[in-house]
Nucleic acid binder design. Sequence first.
DNA 1: AGGCCTCCCTGCGCGC
DNA 2: TGCGCGCAGGGAGGCC
Length: 283
Amino acid sequence: MPELPEVETVRRGLAPYLEGAKIARVTLRRKDLRFPLPASFSKRLTGARITKIGRRAKYLLFHLSNDLVLLSHLGMSGRFRIEGGKAANNPGAFYDDTPASTRHDHVLIEFDAKKRLIYNDTRRFGFMELFAKNELTKRFVNMGIEPLSNEFNGHALYALCKGKKAPIKTTLLDQGLIAGIGNIYACEALYLAKISPKKPAGKLKREETRLLSAAIKKILKKALKLGGSTLRDFHDAGGTAGRFQHEFCVYGRAGKPCLRCGSLIKCFTQAGRSTFYCPNCQR
DNA sequence: AGGCCTCCCTGCGCGC
DNA sequence: TGCGCGCAGGGAGGCC
């Protein structure tokens, strides 16, 4: 799925077109995505205005004027697109150069002025939830720190890693510790910080956690600047591909030379996910 | 309790 | 060219 930079890219794409828009009609093409859609979903959304679109970790948060918040997680292949309204007249920001098959259009949210927001999700690993505004904190109580926040730094990472026997790569993917990093950026950040993905998190020295926290921020910010990464599924709200995939140093580069030392990049499986790293640079 | 594995789903690319 | 297999950015739940 989209990781933090991709979700934030989608948020930034949607916000100017949807903030202030009033929901006129909601159509569900099916009753469930990964999980069942919330009860009375259409009824609870219809008539409300989207006041603000926010993000927490990999979740998009549509704040509504009726004090409900619609949470959307894109899973692996979820994407939003806007049709009609101003968006259609703004080819610079919102053209759809990769029309997704409408076969996987699952949720249609129509606004006034014939504008509509469509949620498309091929693999249906995404999900949506509806919460009262004052229940939102409770929903995220087990969610880790935002890696781009000021609170996230070497000290914070050191504290999170302390005593952990799990490898650092697995630890970075634990959303309850740090929220928003996925497989690609975990690999890339460890490469940048020259730390082995196999190293037990608790064995990291203070200096290493400082370097790693800085590397995470650097990678995420750069990806954000380039509109995220596009492999197969990810496009922003206008259908435009991200560009960070051209900057990968290790992800998907198994067997190719390390850009720093020339050793061959290796790939192996950790906790069920592919890890790419340079066995020479990352110790 | 922590950490690993499996599974959910569809589509695509690669090798035979 | 055609088919089958493995794999894909996530995360919840279950098991050891």
